[in-house]
Write a protein that binds this DNA or RNA. Structure first.
Lengths: 176, 176
DNA sequence: TTAGATTATAAGGTCCCCCTGACTAAAAGG
DNA sequence: CCTTTTAGTCAGGGGGACCTTATAATCTAA
């Protein structure tokens, strides 16, 4: 019982957390666009930062979008200078999309967003939070896989691959 | 040094967390639209669940939107059956917006999203997470207030009021 | 009573995400 | 060689978040 209640309480706090993140984000005009990481143009950037030089077809498969949407996003990103397009020589039908340096930088910037608010946590608390997030993330991962055992959505595959890469290997380059 | 690194690590895990939340959300078709809680129509719902029966003017002030946008969102919500509108008798210019039962239910549903994944945490971990979130949330709150000492944005005020209400009082109707 | 302020509306715009349909150019296979 | 299949394009559309520029209706105060 107490457990359920505590869970509810925590859930509430997580909502608050999202809320505050949201406010903080549009308060400081710095437009980190953290929210846009997982949609539209952001998705493309993400996919490319996982594996550069993908054909639009590849993107379509990985991101589970229509070719048209994909083309649209790629075009927009190109206009912004974040990606470049070139025709494949091997197969003149295919367009190869790649991240420009600027795009790479942008993607970095979007993901980093090292939340300042973490600075209030003690070393111990950071450790606790890390362990907790590992556990929770792993659980979500399982849930997702249960929901879609074959994981048809390539985007999800990509993302999970990302996560798995970080969640279970030694996972740090601690060499200070 | 170690601290900064740990912070970075945690930040990474938080990104993963967002990622997974996102995937989980559009995997299970239940369209909780958690992401839309803080924008447009969601904002309106939120404001009304804080204080029902507001005039559009009130909404405008609280949400920091133009009257036109507000009217638009309200109209859309009305079309969906989430809110109802009535003319004030006292002042025939004003329209009073209130949540319908359906709207109330919807709002509940959107906010609840009691994250199942919290079930993997032990009682102790929940406690830790609660403390951590309190700390972090409080810090974000301060940051926000520093950024805008007078807190011009009424929406933020509303939200902070929400948060403050939960962050420090006893905060629960614990009667299982 | 009439001018000015207040509340809301209509109309139209910008930009975003994402889709369907129709079509071209290039590759592949019989 | 000629028909499919495949990669991508264009055109158009639905829905969402906002905004600006009128304008109408109502209230209020001189």
């Amino acid at each position: 019982m107490a457990d359920l209640m505590k869970q509810g309480k925590t859930a509430g706090k997580l909502v608050e957390f999202g809320l505050l993140q949201n406010i903080a984000e549009d308060d400081s005009k710095h437009q980190s666009d953290y929210k846009m990481l997982f949609q539209g143009q952001g998705k493309i950037l993400l996919a490319l930062s996982d594996h550069d030089r993908l054909s639009q077809k590849d993107l379509v498969e990985r991101l589970d979008l229509t070719p048209q949407s994909t083309a649209e996003f790629v075009r927009k990103l190109e206009k912004k200078g974040f990606v470049s397009r070139e025709k494949s020589v091997a197969d003149k039908r295919v367009t190869i999309v790649s991240l420009t340096d600027q795009g790479r930088a942008e993607t970095q910037k979007r993901m980093q967003v090292i939340p300042q608010y973490l600075r209030v946590l003690t070393d111990q608390e950071l450790g606790q939070l890390n362990r907790i997030l590992d556990k929770v993330n792993e659980r979500m991962l399982q849930d997702i896989q249960e929901e879609d055992p074959t994981l048809h959505n390539k985007y999800h595959q990509l993302m999970l691959h990302h996560v798995l890469n970080k969640v279970h290997p030694d996972q740090s380059v601690e060499h200070d």
